[in-house]
Structure formats: structure tokens, C-alpha cells
């Protein structure tokens, strides 16, 4: 019998600020940490119970429990601004950065990566 343990922690903060009548600012900071772990598998010694010669087999399971271990860390930060050019016309700008750190890798290989995203546009309201 073996324990399989999962830990997930999420920390976030969002804020909005209106420094002046025509300008609105916003921001988000988020952090996620996820780990999973299988306890070491202690297989029984069956050498004295086998009715047959299986010495040619390698029954080592020393690292088996590590195959499914996961350790992910994700940082996300985003900021945004909205500026009222005139009544009904608004300029917007947003930026987001995400960084994923895969410390152990899984069957897909190392999944560490980052993403940078910017967006801007103009809104017309009637």
C-alpha cells in the first residue's frame, strides 16, 4: 500500500486604481505551485517463494515511484490601462507575462515555458 499525495497552492492579488478621472489602471499577480508524489514502493522479497528460476529478471523498483512525480510552478502578472479620450472613445492597453517552471518533467518531457502577451485597441460606445 502506497500513499499518493497532491499539494496545490494558489496565491493571487488583483487591484484597480483610478488616478484621474479619465484613467483606470488594473493589475493581477498570481502564483501557483503544484506537486504530486508517490511514496517509495517497497516491493516484497519473493526470491524464496518462487517455484522456478527467475534470476534472469531484474526486480528492482527503486525509481518506479518517481515516474509520476510532478512539480509545477506558475507565475502570472498582468497590467491594464483604460484612458477616456473623449466621451464614448476609450483607448485600452494590456500586458501579461506568464512563466511556467516544470522542475521534474513528465511523460511529455520538460514543459517549462513562458508567454508574453500585449493587447491594445480602441473602444467606441454609443
Amino acid at each position: 500500500m502506497v500513499d499518493y499525495t497532491t499539494n496545490t497552492g494558489n496565491l493571487f492579488m488583483t487591484a484597480s486604481f483610478i488616478p484621474m478621472y479619465k484613467l483606470r489602471l488594473s493589475g493581477t499577480l498570481a502564483y501557483n505551485k503544484s506537486t504530486t508524489e508517490l511514496d517509495k514502493v517497497v516491493m516484497p522479497d519473493i526470491s524464496d517463494r518462487l517455484d522456478g528460476n527467475l534470476e534472469h529478471q531484474d526486480y528492482s523498483f527503486d525509481q518506479m515511484h518517481e515516474y509520476s512525480n510532478l512539480d509545477y510552478e506558475l507565475w502570472t502578472i498582468s497590467i491594464g490601462a483604460q484612458f477616456d479620450v473623449s466621451p464614448g472613445v476609450q483607448l485600452t492597453a494590456d500586458a501579461e507575462y506568464a512563466d511556467l517552471n516544470d522542475a521534474l518533467g513528465y511523460v511529455y518531457g520538460n514543459e517549462s515555458g513562458s508567454m508574453f502577451f500585449i493587447r491594445t485597441g480602441v473602444r467606441f460606445s454609443f
Binding site: L100, D102, S112, G121, R123, S125
Partner: peptide, 18 residues
């Protein structure tokens, strides 16, 4: 209301997870 704009995305290293 209509918003018209665009976005740019830039990935570093492995992009399918992030």
C-alpha cells in the same frame, strides 16, 4: 459598444503548457 484592436503573443521554450 465596439472594441477594435489587436494582440501580440510571444512564447519562450515549450508553449503547449503555458
Amino acid at each position: 459598444s465596439i472594441w477594435v484592436g489587436g494582440h501580440y503573443t510571444d512564447f519562450g521554450d515549450y508553449n503547449k503548457k503555458v
